[in-house]
Simulated scan of single mutants.
Amino acid sequence: MRRKNNIILGVLFLFCGLIVLQSLTTSRAFAQTPTITPSSATTVIPSKTPTPSILPKDSILVSTATVGTQYPWNKLIPIKIIITPAYSGKMLQVKWQKQASLVGSPTILTIQNPQAGTPYTFSFTLSPHSTSYLRAVADIVLITNTTNYVSSQDIPLQLSKDKVVLPITGSYVSYQIGMYVTLAVFFLGVVPFSLYRIYLYISKVLIPKWLAARIKAPL
C-alpha cells in the first residue's frame, strides 16, 4: 500500500514538473519573440513646385505691332511696327519672312543710323492668300559697330472664308459702306452722265461737222 502511494506521489510530482517546465519554456519563447508593431502611416505632403522666375524680356529691340483696318476693296491689311532700339547702330531693318499665305509689302524696310531710345515706325501691308488662322512674322535686325542684334515680331490674324480679318470692326463696316456708296454713285451717276456727255458731243459736234464736210465735198 505504501509502495502504491509512493508511485502515485511520484507520478504527481513528475506531472507537476512537466507542467512547470512547459510553462517556463513557453514564457521564455514569448520573451524571445519580438513584438511586431505595425508602422504608422506616413503622410506625404507634396512640396510646392517653385514658380520659375520670369526672365526679363530682351529690351535691346522693343517692338510693338498695330493692325489697322483692312481695306474691303482689295483685302490688304495695313500693319504698323514701332521699334525702339536700346543701342545706336548703323542700320535698323525689318524684313518679312516668306510665306505663301501672307505676303508683306514692301518686304524689307531699312533705317540708317538709328539712335538709341528713339522710336521708329515701319508701315507695311499684308496681302492674305489663305483663310483661317494665319501668323505673320517680321524679322528685326539692329546692326551696330560690334554686334548684330536679332529679334522678331509675331502678328497673329484670324481670317474668314472671304479673307476678312476677324472680328469685324466698325471701321471695316464703315469702309465697306463707303465702298458701296462710291460704286453706286459711279455707276448710277458718273457713268450715265458721261454717256450723256458723249451723246451730246457726237450729236452736236461730230455729226454736224461730218454733214458739213459731206455737203461741201464735190460730187
Rank of each mutant, 00 (worst) to 15 (best):
R135H: 14
G68N: 03
W210G: 03
I7Q: 15
A100W: 12
M179S: 05
N148G: 05
T121V: 14
V44C: 08
S160A: 07
N145G: 15
R214Q: 15
N113L: 07
L92R: 00
F186L: 06
I168K: 06
L9S: 12
G117P: 06
I155H: 02
P128T: 06
G17P: 01
A184V: 13
L21V: 12
N74H: 10
Y172S: 04
Y87I: 09
P192I: 00
P192Y: 01
A65D: 01
L109C: 06
N6M: 12
G170C: 05
A136C: 08
I143F: 05
V103I: 15
L159D: 02
V141K: 12
P85M: 10
S88R: 05
T131P: 02
F15E: 09
R135L: 15
Y196S: 00
R197L: 07
D162I: 04
C16I: 15
P167G: 09
Y175M: 03
F15G: 13
A100F: 13
I79Q: 02
A41P: 11
V181M: 09
I82Y: 00
L183R: 01
T144K: 04
L126C: 08
Y120S: 06
L206H: 07
S23W: 12
L55M: 09
G178N: 14
V44M: 08
I143E: 07
I54S: 12
K204L: 03
I82A: 06
T26R: 12
P56G: 09
T33L: 14
S88N: 10
N5R: 11
T51K: 08
L14A: 15
K163F: 08
A100L: 14
Y199M: 01
I79N: 01
T43Q: 11
L76W: 11
V94Y: 00
S151A: 15
W210Q: 14
Y71R: 11
F124R: 01
F193V: 03
L14Q: 03
L109R: 07
A213T: 13
F122S: 00
I54P: 02
S171R: 09
K75E: 10
V165T: 05
S59C: 04
Q112M: 09
T51W: 04
D154A: 11
I111D: 00
K95W: 03
Q112H: 08
S151Y: 11
I8E: 12
A212K: 12
G189E: 07
Q112K: 12
L76D: 05
P46F: 04
Q176W: 07
Q93G: 02
I111L: 12
P128R: 04
I82L: 11
V62H: 07
I8P: 00
S130T: 11
L219G: 08
Q70S: 07
C16E: 14
D162E: 14
L195H: 06
P208M: 05
L211H: 11
T147F: 09
K48I: 10
V141L: 14
K98P: 01
G10M: 09
Q158Y: 10
L211T: 10
V103S: 10
Y87V: 06
G117A: 12
I168L: 00
